[in-house]
Amino acid sequence: MLLREVEYVRPSSLDEALRLLAADDGARPLAGGQTLLNVMKARAAAPDVLVDLNAIEELKGIDLAPNGTLTIGAMTTYTELLEAAETKARPILGEVAATIADVQVRNRGTIGGNVCSNDPTNHLPPLMVALGAEMVIAGADAERTVKAEDFFLGVYLTAAGPGEVLTKIRIPAGRSDGFAAVTIGADGTCIVNAAASLNGEARVAIGCVAAVPVLIRPGGRDADAVRDAVRGADLDPPSDVHASGEYRRHLAEVVAARAIEQASARS
């Protein structure tokens, strides 16, 4: 509960935020804070400067293009994600957002923070990978776009590097999506999760089994094909108090198959 001393600033524009982030190696963006503050409480991380993104309007808002592409500001909260009219175009977004933790966390936690923290048990990294999302990253001098499957680099490590801000996430049109998880209690932390999408090629991304979501492109579009593909992926998941590596490997198959079944039921 007791953070190390830190400097705080709340810029109102992205440029200002980028300037502040560039000015200090120890500066970190603060989004919903629902991971970062916990890490700071435990003093597992101690940034020198927190650059609060909450007052930056350009990072908020959801846009639905005529071709169905959704562009979601990084500072969009889970609550906004599940309530917004636009996200109904890709229903899985709201459905998954609704099962993240609890009301309080959903009111503060952001889609950008969720993917940038890339906690292996988070819901959204595998979902973004399965949906084929694109991440728009602003740096001090340029903006670039990274595919979700290239965005996640390690635990708490993503393509949005020091001094950079993830500004928005673009998600193509589609409806045939699924998500399945085994959680510790209802709406609890994921033991293993998987997202699947059947819009175009079949894509399944599995969370909690490695440092980054594992993308699988199964040979077929049914559960058996997915199971085969997961088996073939030679997963080597971690063991912890909730699951052995072996159990996780087994669950990965099961939830991947369930996610694809849900997706195909919607195609």
Partner: peptide
């Protein structure tokens, strides 16, 4: 909005 006040800084 409902929040957990241990998950916000006072300055925010």
């Amino acid at each position: 909005q409902l929040v957990k006040s241990c998950m916000l800084l006072a300055v925010q």
